[in-house]
Structure formats: C-alpha cells, structure tokens
C-alpha cells in the first residue's frame, strides 16, 4: 500500500507531467491527443481486473465483471480510434518522394 504523502507527491508530479507534455501541442493534434489520452486512462482495466480477481461474493463478481467489460472497451476502442486518426497524418514532402 502506498502511504498518503507519497501518493500526494505522485499526484503532484504526474499532474505536472500531464500539463507539460501537452502544453506545446499544435491544434491539429488536439483531437488525436484527446483520443490518445482517452486510451491511456483505459489502464482502469487493470484496476477492474484486480477488483474482479479479489471478488468473493456474487455482488462483487457482477460489479467486477461490469468494470472489466467497460474498462476493456475503453482501452480497445480508444486504441483503434486513435490509431485510425494518426494513420492519416502525413507530410506532403514524403508524398512527393513517393
């Protein structure tokens, strides 16, 4: 278990990181980036898997199952959609070389 103050430092550092990496992004990438960060919080799948893994009652199994189902959808859908968007970005220079 992570102690309270270490978690606080984690929150702070991660928040700065999130702010930093996105602050110099050209507008053309806002939508893919929103979609990409949407994919990244699909990591919630891992948490839901642990919840389901720990389940000992039927209620917990149902909740865990729903959690895993939703989390997996977030991760898989987020990935496919972002990949499709980014696939289309290409430079005219490269095209000219073809």
């Amino acid at each position: 278990m992570i102690s309270g103050e270490i978690a606080l430092y984690l929150f702070m550092l991660a928040a700065f990181t999130g702010h930093e990496i996105i602050s110099r992004v050209p507008v053309i990438l806002h939508t893919p980036l929103m979609s990409g960060s949407n994919f990244v919080h699909g990591i919630v799948l891992v948490g839901a898997m642990i919840t389901l893994g720990e389940a000992t009652t039927l209620t917990q199994q149902v909740i865990g199952f729903v959690g895993v189902f939703l989390g997996a959808g977030n991760a898989a859908g987020g990935y496919v959609v972002t990949e499709r968007m980014l696939e289309m970005f290409k430079s005219s220079k490269k095209e000219g070389a073809k």
Binding site: I2, A14, T17, G18, M34, S37, V40, H41, I43
Partner: peptide
C-alpha cells in the same frame, strides 16, 4: 500505474 496514468490524463485533459 493507475495513479500515474490517471493523473497525467486528468491534468492533460
């Protein structure tokens, strides 16, 4: 992993 990924997305979002 959840704390870091979630917070990064929270701040960036």
């Amino acid at each position: 992993a959840l704390i870091i990924a979630g917070t990064v997305v929270g701040a960036a979002g």
